[in-house]
Structure formats: C-alpha cells, structure tokens
Write a protein that binds this DNA or RNA. Structure first.
Lengths: 244, 244
DNA sequence: CGCTCAGTTGAAACTCGTCAAAACACGTGG
DNA sequence: CCACGTGTTTTGACGAGTTTCAACTGAGCG
C-alpha cells in the first residue's frame, strides 16, 4: 500500500471500520504525494479548486485574511486530513490553504473521490470526516468566543493531543507540534506576546511544557478539566489510536 | 405547493436553479410544519437526531454551552435553513438547536432527504447549502478572532442583510431582526453591555439604526466597507433575491 | 398600576494588545 | 569552530478595549 493511501486509511479508520476491499480501493485511487515547502500556498482565496488535497505528511492549514493583513487560521490539517470533498461544487475558494511545515500532499482527482463514495463504509467515513471538520469549527468558535486565553490555549492543545493520538502521532503525555507561538495566536485569536505569557503561566502551573515544537502534558486529565475539554465533538471511534 | 416546501425551494433556488420536477419532488417529500414556542430546545447536545429539521418560519439557532452556563451561538437558522443533511450519520449531537422566536419547523424524514439527493440539481443545491453553512462558520471564526467589536457587529448585520434578502425577507435598507442585544452578544462573543455601546456608536455614526427588532441601514455599501464585508463566502447565485 | 424584560449608563477592574528591546536558538558561511 | 544573521521566544511598560457590577430608564402586558 502506498504511503498516501496508508495515511488516509489510518485517518478514516478513526471514523469508521474499513474492510480489506475498502483499503484496496483507497490504494487504487490515491495518487502518490508530492513535496511542498513550508509556508507555501496550496490554493488561494478566490481560486477554483481542481483536486481534493490530502495531507500525507506535515501540517497545513486553512486560513482567511483581513484587508489589513491580519490572518486567522480556521482549520489545522493534520496527516490524513483533506480539503472539502465537494469543494469542486463551489465556484471559488472562500479561504486559502497553505502548508505550515514542509508537507507531502496528494492531489486526489474528482473521479477518485467518486469511486470511494461508492463503498458504503468509505462513504460513511468520508462524510463523517466532513461532519467532524464542521464540529471542530463550532468548537473553535465557542473556544474563541467564550473562553479566556488560558483555557483557550489549553483547549486547543487538548484537541491536538486527541487528534494526533488517533493517527498515532502522539503519546500519552506529549507530542511534536511544529507551530510557532505566533501561529498558535493566529488560531486562538491572541497576540503573539499574549500567547507567550499564557504558555509561561501554563508552564508555571505545571500543566503544559511547550518548547521548540514539543508539547509535554504531564497530566492530560488535569489539563482537560481546567479548560472543560470534552472530546465528544471529535466523534472518534473508541478504539481509535490503538491500531498500527 | 405547501408552505414548508415553498420556503425550502426559495432557499435552494438561491444556490442552484431548480426545474419544475425538482419543485414537485420537494413538495412531495416535505411534510407540513408544526409550531414551536420561542426559546425552546428542538434538540439538545448529546441527543440522537432522528429527522432533519427545516425552519419554515421564525429564527432558530445552533448553540454550545460551557460548564459555567455561558452560551455561544454557532449558527443562526433562518427560514429555509435546516440541520445537517447527514446529521443521522453522527451518533450524538455535539451542539443543541433551539428556537429563538416562535417557529414553524418541518421534520424531514431520512428517506425524504435521500429522495431529494436523487435529483442532480437538488443534490447540488443541498450540498452547496452545507458548504455555505461551513463557510459561514469560518467567516464567524475570522470575525470573532480578528475583528474588533464595532466591525464585528457590523459584519454580522451585513451578513444577515444578505441572507435575508436572498429569501425575500429584507429590503434594500433594512430588515426585521428578532434578536435581543444579549443574543447578538452570544453570537459575537461580546457582553450585553458592550453590544449596547457598540450599537449606540453605530447609531451615532449613522451607520445602523437598531431598535426593537428592526435594523435600518441607510447606506449598506458604507457599512460593508467599514467592516470589510464581502459576500463571496455566501456563494449566492447572482439573481438571488430577485424572484418571488 | 405594577410587573418584567430589554435597553442604557457610569465607574472600576481586568484582560489583552501594542511597542520596543533583549535573550535565545538555529543554520550558514567564513 | 566561531561569527553572524534570521527568526522565535521572552520581558517590561503602558494603554486600549472589554467585562463586570450595579443601578436606572423605558416599553409592553396583565
């Protein structure tokens, strides 16, 4: 099974169980990935999408910008995540997609997506994945709208812990997070300086140790309690994260 | 054509053009609506959805709550809007839906939705509608994350103006908005008091006159310019709002 | 008339943003 | 190996924006 297909399969299995036939189908329709540099636009606002992009390796994001250049990240795309399945339905993009780190991206042609939708299990997994994307958007909205900076960052870190663990990219007490504090600020709607102060405070309280791309969470339960994190909205299968 | 079907048709025609056959199909699968009081839960977080709810009359919303009782509205459902088409795919709701004003709600059974998805034009319209819902979420996230209170409220009022105009519920320079300032605050992530101050300031600058459920916008272009509003993300057809 | 709920106002406290500078990490080329 | 440059993290001081509390006004309704 090629690398791209494997990554997608891993992600989809966190949402629905797949048969051997499904895995073969995935392998057949997912093209090999190509390499992109860090911080590079994959598609810009206003452009017309041709493919569904699948992140195979690295971190990417969806973003929107304001006239004055302020940018807000409206989604984080982890390995296995992809752009909207029905994106081709919309004339033009209302947001951009960019790499964060260096990435491997597979461009799935329209027909490949349609083929996958033929399989009931894959259809279910793919549709669930778009529903989860939407659920995450709602949770982020709540996060920014109602929580204050400390809980806000804590909540974001909890979410990433869960999402990364589901795809085998995080351990019990920590994970690699290749995001600068400025970028965390662009997600959380906080200034870089304030993110830094919050990070410092979380460290002082021994809740999170964040430094140079690495997140350590000594007691995930305590952190989750602090910010009221509840993973329900991620709609992960119970056994997610336990397979190879 | 029954009332519920008519409302849905009006909404869908803002997204894709429908044939006479499509309209008949809609009429056949949409059941009559029933009445709900104002401020009543239609479905709560954690419950399992059985139907797709269609708002026929009145305003409803999706909301999420925090432990401490703070509530945030993550979507506003106007006449013609409905809950997620594939909601039944998810085990339990990660948010609640509630009426705002008194409402007429039609509960579309699963099979009705499937029937509509058979028609290419309806499928396109329905899928586009979920994509637009997601686009609105992203825009709200940007709005709360990056804009300050005045532009934030202005942007929200611009969006509602466009959405209501598309379904024939707003004129060139104003519309009825049955939301309290407290509720606007729950959307914008602002305290009631601050919403009030911003409303006052917008009135002073002759941008928006908001009082007792009525919004008057003497110069929509000027207001849109102030907050950087660009309707692209609503993906409305050009002729939206011009039909009966 | 008196109730209730929405809107309004002021003062004080607090959260967070801005500006500016310094400390630090990392990669590069000398 | 060190020096240098770039980009990220850290710090302090200050001010702007926003929340909170508490009281008051006004409209609608029984």
């Amino acid at each position: 099974m090629n690398r791209s297909a494997q990554v997608l399969a891993t992600k989809l299995r966190t949402l629905s169980s797949l048969s051997a036939g499904d895995l073969e189908l995935i392998d057949r329709v997912i093209p090999p990935a190509s390499h992109y540099e860090a911080r590079r636009d994959l598609i810009r606002e206003g452009e017309v999408p041709q493919y569904v992009m699948l992140v195979v390796q690295g971190f990417a994001c969806r973003y929107k910008t304001l006239r004055d250049g302020k940018r807000h990240l409206v989604a984080l795309l982890l390995p296995g995540d992809c752009g909207d399945l029905h994106a081709p339905l919309l004339d033009h993009m209302d947001h951009g997609i960019a790499t964060h780190t260096a990435c491997l991206i597979a461009k799935i042609p329209r027909e490949g997506v349609l083929d996958m939708l033929e399989s009931p299990a894959l259809e279910k997994a793919l549709r669930r994945s778009t529903l989860v994307d939407e659920a995450i958007l709602r949770e982020w909205l709540l996060n920014i709208g109602q929580r204050r900076s400390e809980e806000r960052l804590a909540h974001l870190l909890c979410e990433l812990h869960h999402r990364l663990r589901a795809i085998g990219m995080a351990g019990e007490a920590g994970y690699d997070l290749p995001l600068t504090q400025a970028e965390l600020g662009e997600i959380a709607g906080l200034s870089t300086v304030h993110v830094n102060r919050v990070v410092k405070e979380l460290r002082r309280r021994e809740l999170v140790y964040l430094r140079r791309g690495r997140v350590e969470i000594p007691d995930p339960r305590r952190l989750a309690w602090l910010c009221g994190f509840n993973a329900n909205y991620l709609h992960q299968l119970a056994e997610a994260g336990t397979f190879s």
